[in-house]
Amino acid sequence: MTDRHAARPAFQAAGWVVLPSIVPETTWCAARTVLYALSRHRSGWRSPKKLHVEDVTGVHPSVNAMVSNPAVTDFARETFAEPVLLGARFRAPLPGYGEQTLHTDDDSGYSGAIRLLTVILPLDLFTARTGATRVLPGIHRDWSAAVPLDPCLPVDGEVCVRAEPGDAIIMSGQLWHSGTRNVSAAPRGAVSLSWIEPSLWSR
């Protein structure tokens, strides 16, 4: 967990940071109720591994408040000259699922100025047991190690990010990270945002 005043240098050094308690409890509780209900009852394609809503913009005022959170918006404005919110989605890996191979959200071969921010807003506790995100701190510009084919294998230097509902996990698009297996008895939900600097995507 990082004090907000130290967030920028911590992010620059490690490629990720947690902003604590930026979403009021009344807001994330209401958003959690809405999104879990919507993910279970909305018609269309369903996954046996997770609950999901592909686009959560406009579904409820509480969700809108999370998506437009001022602390996150300010962070994006401090990072990019002309930040654009590219998307907002809900994901909740079900018990027994959620593990991923380490990956970057930007092109893994891209090494220019940061052009993508991934923001995760937990709606449930993020711990090793619930399938929290793991990151490789500091390896957000150039990582040449082989990615393990087994998504459950640990990697030297990885950190399992602990976060609570109301926090925000902010990651560079160049940061190597992944979900881990949810071994708890309940889904582990979060809202994920993608902020970009459009001018850098033409390069």
Rank of each mutant, 00 (worst) to 15 (best):
T2D: 04
D3M: 12
R8C: 05
F11R: 02
A13H: 11
A13R: 15
V17R: 08
V18A: 10
V18Y: 01
L19H: 01
P20N: 09
I22V: 15
V23N: 00
E25V: 09
C29I: 07
R32I: 08
T33H: 13
L38C: 01
L38M: 05
L38H: 03
S39C: 07
H41L: 14
R42C: 09
R42F: 01
R42S: 10
S43P: 04
S43G: 13
S47N: 13
H52T: 14
E54T: 02
T57K: 13
T57H: 13
N64A: 13
M66K: 07
S68Q: 15
S68L: 12
P70S: 12
D74P: 03
D74S: 11
D74Y: 12
A76M: 01
E78T: 12
F80T: 02
A81I: 03
A81Y: 05
P83Y: 04
P83T: 04
L86V: 00
R89W: 09
F90I: 02
R91V: 11
P93V: 13
Q100E: 12
L102I: 06
T104R: 12
D105E: 14
D107K: 05
S108N: 06
S111P: 00
G112Y: 06
L116V: 01
T118I: 10
T118P: 00
L123V: 02
L123M: 07
L123S: 00
T127Y: 01
A128E: 11
T130S: 14
A132H: 00
V135E: 05
L136F: 12
L136G: 04
L136Q: 03
H140L: 08
D142I: 06
D142F: 13
S144F: 11
S144H: 14
A145V: 10
D150G: 02
D150S: 03
C152P: 00
C152R: 10
L153G: 02
L153C: 13
L153Q: 15
V155A: 05
D156T: 06
G157V: 05
C160P: 06
E164D: 15
P165Y: 05
A168V: 00
A168H: 01
I169K: 00
I169H: 01
I170D: 00
M171R: 07
M171A: 08
L175F: 09
S178D: 04
S178C: 11
S178W: 00
N182W: 08
V183R: 14
A186Y: 10
S192E: 11
L193I: 01
S199M: 06
S199Y: 01
S202D: 13
R203G: 09
